[in-house]
Design a protein around this nucleic acid. Sequence first.
DNA 1: CAGCGTTTGTTGAACATTCATTCAGTACGG
DNA 2: CCGTACTGAATGAATGTTCAACAAACGCTG
Lengths: 249, 249
Amino acid sequence: MNTPPLDDEAPKTSRTGETDRKGEGERRGRKASKEQRRQQLIEATIDSLARRGYSETTMADVADGAGLSRGIVNFHFESKEKLLVATLQYMADEYAAHWRSALARAGEDPADRLWALVAADFDRFVCNKRKLAAWCAFWGEAKSRPTYQALCGARDQAYQQVFVDLCDALEREAGYGFEPGAMALALSATLEGLWLRLMLGTENVTRETSFQAAAELLASVFPRHFVRDGAGVRRRAGKGHEMTERTER
Amino acid sequence: MNTPPLDDEAPKTSRTGETDRKGEGERRGRKASKEQRRQQLIEATIDSLARRGYSETTMADVADGAGLSRGIVNFHFESKEKLLVATLQYMADEYAAHWRSALARAGEDPADRLWALVAADFDRFVCNKRKLAAWCAFWGEAKSRPTYQALCGARDQAYQQVFVDLCDALEREAGYGFEPGAMALALSATLEGLWLRLMLGTENVTRETSFQAAAELLASVFPRHFVRDGAGVRRRAGKGHEMTERTER
DNA sequence: CAGCGTTTGTTGAACATTCATTCAGTACGG
DNA sequence: CCGTACTGAATGAATGTTCAACAAACGCTG
């Protein structure tokens, strides 16, 4: 009951990129710098969270996963608590950087930006079983730990505000009649809910079907900006730049 | 960091209804039946999950919360694992009974039924911090425990199918053009996502604003069936029975 | 109905295990 | 040869489980 088949679609290595994770260990000496070691341990923590869940993640498991000795974590991080907070912080930073980057690449048009934001959420880099499982592990503990609670809004104040602003802009462009704040809440909640569904992994929900569901919703809520086209949804031509990005099936 | 203000809006007592939970203990003798004791312990487990989170929920805490002695849980349930499974099962049954009942009360018209389903999700009985926190605690562990995974689809196969059927019916009535399966996934994910947001409890998200957001979404996706009316959303008149239920502000 | 043994729910202390943390020692780099 | 990164065994605290003792209900008999 300990290792269900999990990481079927996760990108294997982290950006640190060493492949010595499971290595024999002969060269695991004084090579890595302090910061590298910290990242290595954080990656091992995410692995453990994904594989065994929060309550069964132990210091020993993290150390083993990193191919290092038991006491190592208390050397680089002060305690288990601090390790977990650092891990969550790492994931939150990574997530925020990811959507900000997608937004920056999207240009100025609100519809393009909204689409980019949604698409970014289903990018393999952030949307894979490993990271989703880790997120969910923290969610489960967030209510009783203020420190987690603050960071678990990776979809935080700023993220939410972007959604509100975009909904507001689109509403004013086309006069949809909805209340921007409420709609923004509904849309961002949908993305989170789809992540959750994906994580629980029951049924036949995949990254593709989830993305398609989100796109379908955009087409219904913003019919003047997005249009159904065969099996996919795409940006409607006419307004801003013509972008023909589309759902992938 | 142990007892943040949590149960601000939760309905206090369970259906078992005894108030002897925190009683002095002089009459806590052989009064309760076996089944009553089990329920009492399950309620105490939900309390503990909500208050301290999954990883910090201990047998001692559950026993204390029920006002009983340490060894009691292992007598009524065989182990901690079995207690938690029973608790999850209890919540899943309760949730399923709740939406089925709401559906039964809603009549035949698909739009009324969909509205009832959504409204049921934000009913105080199931949607309060205590139960939401407990759900979320299980979600966090579900990935690594097949037993939890199966039950965590309280929103399970059957629930999802109801959504698909309703989306399909409404689509055929009005020719919205969306794919029912995808839309059903998006909508049910939205509800779950709103629960999650509510649970994390950041920002100013309340049960009312969440419900309003969901209603706003319904009005956008099914404009021929629901209409915005002042500050709320209501069932559009004309088709089935005229129901003027609306969001509460 | 009293007396009495049996069953059943309950207690709390003892036990075993798991795990985070500590720290004295080791080895590599500069 | 000094300092820093690292090791791994020892330690102690926390916690799930067991169990022998206990007491309340129940049933039986006289």
